[in-house]
Design a binder for these strands. Structure first.
Lengths: 216, 216
DNA sequence: TACAATTTGATAACAAAATAACAAAATGGA
DNA sequence: TCCATTTTGTTATTTTGTTATCAAATTGTA
């Protein structure tokens, strides 16, 4: 377990995929797993896998590899999936609802403890066991619940305003689904969930792919 | 406009953010914009901005910068937002519905022309003006419509199966919302919309941030 | 016990991306 | 017209990330 943690997105994506791979492995097939096997299965360079695992785990034994169970635990720990953080959600529209009903969210280390909207019709209703509250009370409730993650799922026009309100409530990390650049003080972290960019890359790759392989 | 296009995710994220910045700019303030200004506004290195713009645009004039209108058009073109591709969606659950009702999708170059599900109750219904069809007919319809982008928004357990069905229908690019590793032939491109990874990174940054600035 | 096979982890070579430094072009004003 | 200023675009340099190579460790087996 290294002390200097690289922050490369790619590293996290890869670790996440190793984890998925191992979890979907037929149980009891073998107690151990090696970087070589993971690399082969996922079509990644095996040195890469070894280095990645070295970052996130205590390392395995030569000739044996890693104890699968332990490695899974290590990756889950490194990725933070093993200890849940509380979060609040703003915007109970389509995306907000999807997040609220996304069971797996807790499995990935986030628990939505409160949701907010400005729409009077929505306030007071609930999705699952999360009540939707008036956004006016947001900052206050954030402070009271001592939450430091906020999820922004409101229309682009209101995103900045909502973000500032969250920050005034003590939020330190914003997961932003609105297609805008949020400006925040340096004490706050923003992660944009950037569908548009994903799409752009997907289509570029598609174009390259077709150029390379032609229409099959 | 360079001929050798780098495929770095970060480049695309940055270009996308420049675009958002310019679009939200008060109209008529000035016809021109410079890398320096963009860099300052977004807190990015100005050389980075210049290089990025050089990749995506024809370049501006010294001392003047870029014509904002043209630069926006260039970025939109580079990111593919200006010409729509057709796509099909599989899985009309929560996420599927969100995507179907996400107006901005077309603005980002994707138009969902058909949606599929296996749930008899859903088949025949419509979201917006997209009808939900029986997944049995998927491959066939994909071929008929000559679509080559497929969006997978089904539960993890069915994702691989659905993916293969899409490929058999001629799909060449898969936008995957299911938290699994899809295995596909090399003629097919996959882009994982990887919420878990995003969350992991967000929380790591949050932790670092708090370590750095303490609780404010 | 000695040897072959496999895997790890460390070091080194390589590639790509980010940053820095600088020269050339365009503009405005003295 | 000439000079200072701003901005671009090009060329280095540095940093980061990826891939290759190799020695040491562990296991199974002859």
């Amino acid at each position: 377990m290294s002390s200097k943690i690289p922050m490369s997105i790619m590293l996290y994506k890869r670790l996440n995929s190793y984890l998925h791979y191992m979890k979907q492995l037929p149980l009891g097939d073998s107690d151990n797993i090696s970087s070589t096997v993971i690399a082969a299965a996922l079509g990644v360079n095996n040195v890469q896998v070894r280095k990645d695992l070295a970052i996130a785990s205590d390392g395995g034994k030569p000739r044996v590899g890693h104890m699968t169970k332990d490695l899974i635990a290590d990756l889950e720990h490194f990725l933070g999936y093993d200890n849940c953080s509380n979060a609040v959600l703003v915007g109970a529209g389509n995306m907000g609802n999807t997040l609220l009903s996304y069971d797996n969210l807790e499995q990935y280390g986030i628990k939505i403890v409160a949701a907010f909207d400005c729409e009077p019709d929505l306030i007071g209703t609930a999705v699952g066991n999360v009540k939707i509250l008036d956004v006016e009370r947001m900052a206050d409730i954030c402070r009271r619940l001592d939450v430091n993650i906020g999820i922004v799922a409101v229309p682009p026009l209101h995103a900045q305003e909502v973000c500032e309100e969250l920050i005034s409530g003590g939020i330190r990390a914003v997961w932003n689904f609105a297609p805008v650049n949020l400006s925040v003080p340096e004490t706050v972290t923003v992660k944009n969930e950037d569908m548009a960019t994903s799409l752009a890359i997907l289509r570029k790759q598609l174009a390259e792919n077709i150029e390379h392989f032609g229409f099959v």
